[in-house]
Nucleic acid binder design. Structure first.
Length: 935
RNA sequence: GCGCAUGUGGCGUAAUUGGUAGCCGCGCCAGACUUAGGAUCUGGUGCCGCGAGGCGUGGGGGUUCGAGUCCCUCCAUGCGCACCA
């Protein structure tokens, strides 16, 4: 009976489902292992062959760990809130829940066919009210929390209120905007004096109204509502977080993004910057992801320095090079800087106003694209804190309002941008370096020695840094300071298909809905668009209120639900807590997380952030979610092209395309085999090609051109797993995807090689056959056969331990080839191979295991152990090299001493020939490796 | 511009610590079987050379008895950040 994969796979799929073979339960007597895939957004297009690459790899590892005796948690679910379903709803009026439901059904069908060992009883969907109830609950935790810089921990807001009651803001060291009172006035009747600088007493606090207290607390909450400058995307009708923007346009759809001041919910992730960087050292993630996160968080150490300007204005700057302080020749403010208005002199007023207005008009992207140097003098001066010199204050849009203090001290000698600015406006360039030529460019080396810098003369950056900071501290003009690029994350989206906030407004004060009343379910609306007045879609709901008080109309962003889903899998049906304490304790961190690198600055950062919050508040016993992560590469498509002669319906073969002026058009890859076009199929493909004519190559064929690019519907290059499973089976697909190369690597999809892998499974199957029927021998396997088996056990085990999925397939092939050559059909030799094959080809392995007479599933068998007695060999075939070049081989006993090996080599007849009459200078003998004769 | 990663046959790749470069598969060539095959089986296949042999892991240099692997430098490709002071 030939390898009948269709029947085999269908039968086992059914049996696994019936028996709930992959259900796992917590078992304190067994060691746990948690293998997780990044759950997918269920799009309408379904899965293509690229999606399952990581799923297959993690499934193999999960099955392997199960064979090793671990209790393996390997769940799957859906990140089911999202834009496409909403956009489809806008077009068709169909409720996104329905579209989502259909897409999930399709995904499930496709996933099931591949033979994954998911415990589907633990499925989660972020859009299900049972799930988002707990997303809302976590939002509540964040709302009711603040960040204590004393203990470096997230703490309940009640503790902060107690501190205020007790001693006002004195002794409170919280992460917040340090100058919150400047931008966030406490409503109408200001209770503090004009000189208020952020500190208040318990009497002040007690004297505040409810609204004032709440407004003040907003500056401390981790989830907070504030007027902030956000990235507004008019085309999508919503705000976007920084990580949702690539190259100045929206990641989804590529629409322009503008800066807009809006009252929005935000997450105080910036409080966690240092921990998010430091804890990277405690997790086993790919270096490039860690590096991306480090860059994104953007830590830089420097100093804050204050310059006293005219009109009682103090300009504070942030610099990473305080050592160059003596080289300051001007200050530059961002156009949005708060002091621009007051510092502008009468003579300069028009010029400044024009410049500031112009900057405002430009989008971020335009500012970026514009390489032109621009700026304007304010007409004011500030005093150098050490020299007392008067320094001109300029405005320039190369200074960003959102970073540091929005003001810089310009040192043309030590910074290229300042240098360019100075050259352009003919400002002074003070040379503060002993040996640097500043005629062409600035000196940016930290090793350059300082000059013309008073007490810093002769020092380099490292020495001068501390010296100057110390001096600034003494005179109160500045101090050391660490700055981060990471901004707080906007958490509001003006969309329908997302989690509603558990928030209503009582006289404008945001109030949290009690846990007992959750979930706050999405209301029905008549359309999924913003209202006429520009309010989010939820504003359309007729009874979107609580006891007559209005509900929050924004919804949460896509990353809310995915920031904690790995915890819900542990206890998905719990109605009283997000996951029980015992279960969280049992399953702990994700041991292996598999997914794409594209989430480096989004999901992977946000889930780390939420994990730290939950850890600080005592809900989970670990502060990093994913212990080890592997990023699978992208599988690219290989698009095919036909060449239509301009203004005709005639297509010319690839080889001859240059004879005419042609237009390159996509041809569906299903119509192309080995770059040859199926002409009849092509004519029937699209109506416009029905009457197409063809100019063929010399072999009478039509050759297509090709290119490797991302798989996409519009490129007609999408390869779905379904058709390959139909043709070759899921086991072949699984093995083939692994065989393609290292999982981390991106590679073009190439269907050609799949035959070879399919063949391997057939040949493996054939080992168990005699005259087309199942037949294995009970005889003892020979030494040679056992050697093959144990060599393979060793190789495969080692490869899986180091996550080298591709080389395992190779090792299976070698074993199959060798056992075929040996005509081995011994049970003793074949059984361990079936066990080892089962993670890769679970259906075939189950079938063979059953045929071998077992009544239990192969997946519970323990992993075979390589026994060294089968691997040892008496002799080693030494490569004998002369000056590093291998010349011949010599088989010598393994235990032979180096001196004896040397003697044997010298005595060998071929040695004289390769010595060419010379005397060996030295002979290197590496036991069981190599002999090298040095001449 | 800064940071990170990757460069090995016609192609995908292999070579845990420096120790026989090219395993396994695709493709290609030859043969067998077959009415036929995009089936199956057998053999061959880095490049140059009839051969002996020489040359070969992006280029150049170095360390070493020995380098795909370590160091320096340059180049190419991909990814991330990008006026971040």
């Amino acid at each position: 009976m030939e390898y009948d994969f269709r029947n085999i796979e269908a039968n086992w799929r059914k049996k696994w489902a019936q028996d709930e073979s992959y259900k796992v339960t917590e078992d304190p007597n067994k060691k746990k292992f948690y293998v997780l895939d990044m759950f997918p957004y269920p799009s309408g297009a379904g899965l293509h062959v690229g999606h399952p690459l990581g799923y297959i790899a993690s499934d193999i590892y999960a099955r392997y760990m199960r064979h090793k005796g671990y209790n393996v948690l390997h769940p799957m679910g859906y990140d089911s809130f999202g834009l496409p379903a909403e956009q489809y709803a806008i077009l068709t009026g169909q409720h996104p829940a329905k579209t989502t439901e259909q897409n999930i059904a399709r995904y499930r069908e496709q996933l099931d066919k591949i033979g994954f060992s998911y415990d589907w009883s633990r499925e989660v969907r972020t859009s299900s009210p049972d799930y988002y109830k707990w997303t809302q609950w976590i939002f509540g935790l964040l709302f009711n929390a603040w960040y204590d810089l004393e203990t470096n921990k997230t703490c309940p807001i009640s503790e902060l209120i107690a501190k205020f009651e007790d001693n006002g803001s004195y002794g409170v060291n919280a992460h917040m905007d340090e100058e919150w009172w400047k931008t966030y006035l406490l409503e109408a009747d200001h209770i503090f004096s004009a000189h208020f600088e952020g500190e208040f007493t318990d009497t002040d606090w007690k004297g505040m109204t409810e609204a004032q207290k709440e407004a003040l607390l907003m500056n401390y909450r981790i989830a907070y509502l504030a007027d902030s400058v956000v990235n507004w995307c008019p085309a999508l009708g919503t705000v976007l977080a920084n990580d949702e923007i690539k190259d100045g346009v929206s990641e989804r759809g590529g629409h322009p993004v503008e800066q807009k001041k809006m009252r929005q919910w935000s997450m105080r992730i910036s409080a966690y910057s240092e921990r998010l960087i430091a804890d990277l050292d405690t997790i086993d993630w790919p270096d490039n992801i860690k590096e991306i996160q480090r860059n994104w968080i953007g830590k830089s150490s420097g100093a804050r320095i204050r310059f006293q300007a005219e009109k009682e204005v103090t300009i504070e700057v942030f610099t990473t090079r305080p050592d160059t302080l003596y080289g300051v020749s001007f200050l530059t403010l961002a156009p949005e800087h708060e002091s621009v208005e007051v510092l502008t002199s009468e003579e300069q007023r028009n010029a400044v106003m024009e410049y500031v207005a112009n900057s405002k008009l430009k989008t971020e992207r335009e500012r970026m694209a514009e390489k032109k140097i621009s700026g304007v003098f304010t007409g004011s001066y500030a005093m150098h804190p050490l020299t007392g010199e008067q320094i001109p204050v300029w405005i320039g849009d190369y200074v960003l309002a959102g970073y540091g203090t929005g003001a810089v001290m310009a040192v043309p000698a030590g910074d290229q941008r300042d240098y360019d600015f100075a050259k352009h406006f003919n400002l002074e360039i003070k040379n503060i370096f002993a040996e640097s030529d500043l005629s062409e460019k600035a000196e940016t080396s930290k090793d350059a020695l300082l000059a013309n810098s008073d007490f810093l003369n002769g020092m380099n950056y490292y020495a001068a840094f501390d010296a100057v900071c110390e001096r600034l501290m003494e005179i109160g003009a500045g101090e050391k300071r660490v700055n981060y690029r990471l901004r707080d994350a906007v958490f509001s989206r003006q969309r329908y298909w997302g989690e509603p906030f558990p928030i209503y407004y009582e006289n404008g004060i945001p109030r949290l809905i009690n846990t007992e009343e959750l979930p706050t379910e999405l209301p029905d609306v008549d359309a999924y668009l913003p209202t006429e007045s520009g309010e989010p879609p939820l504003a359309r709901a007729t009874n979107w209120e609580r006891n007559g008080m209005p509900m929050e109309c924004n919804t949460m962003p896509g990353w809310a639900g995915s920031s904690w889903y790995f915890l819900r899998y542990m206890d998905p049906n719990n109605h009283s807590v997000f996951a029980s304490e015992e279960r969280i304790k049992y399953w702990g961190q994700v041991d292996l997380y598999m997914g794409g690198a594209e989430h480096a600055t989004g999901h992977l950062l946000y889930s780390r952030f939420w994990t730290k919050v939950l850890f600080d508040l005592g809900y989970i016993p670990f502060n990093e979610p994913f212990k080890k992560m592997i990023n699978q590469g992208m599988i690219l498509g290989r698009s095919s092209f036909v060449y239509r002669i301009k203004d005709s319906n005639t297509f010319i073969s690839f080889e001859r395309r240059k004879e005419f002026e042609t237009q390159r058009l996509y041809a569906a890859i299903s119509l192309v085999d080995n770059d040859k076009l199926n002409i009849e199929g092509f004519k029937n493909w699209l109506p416009e090609y029905a009457n197409a004519e063809f100019m063929l190559n010399e072999n009478g064929e039509y050759t297509c051109g090709w290119e490797v690019e991302k798989m996409s519907k519009s490129k007609y290059n999408v390869q779905t797993p379904d058709e390959l499973i139909e043709k070759f089976g899921a086991d072949t697909l699984r093995c083939y995807e692994m065989f393609l190369g290292p999982v981390e690597q991106s590679k073009p999809w190439d269907t050609k090689g799949i035959n070879g892998v399919h063949n391997f499974l057939r040949r493996f199957h054939r080992l168990f056959l005699e005259n087309e029927t199942f037949a294995v021998s009970s005889e003892e396997a020979t030494a040679a056969e056992m050697r093959v088996v144990h060599k393979t056990i060793k190789k495969i085990t080692e490869d899986l331990e180091r996550f080298s999925w591709n080389t395992v397939v190779s090792a299976f092939m070698i074993a199959t080839n060798e056992l075929t050559d040996l005509k081995c059909n011994k049970r003793q030799a074949l059984e361990p191979l079936v066990v080892m094959l089962s993670p890769y080809a679970p259906h075939l392995a189950e079938e063979l295991w059953k045929d071998l007479g077992h009544s239990t599933s192969v997946m519970n068998e323990s992993w075979p152990v390589a026994e060294s007695k089968y691997l040892e060999d008496d002799n080693f075939e030494y490569p004998i090299s002369f000056n590093g070049k291998t010349r011949f081989f010599l088989s010598l006993p393994v235990g032979m001493s180096g001196a004896d090996v040397e003697a044997q080599v010298l005595a060998h007849e071929s040695t004289a020939k390769y010595l060419e009459g010379k005397t060996p200078k030295k002979i290197i003998v590496v036991p069981k490796r190599i002999v090298n004769v040095v001449m």
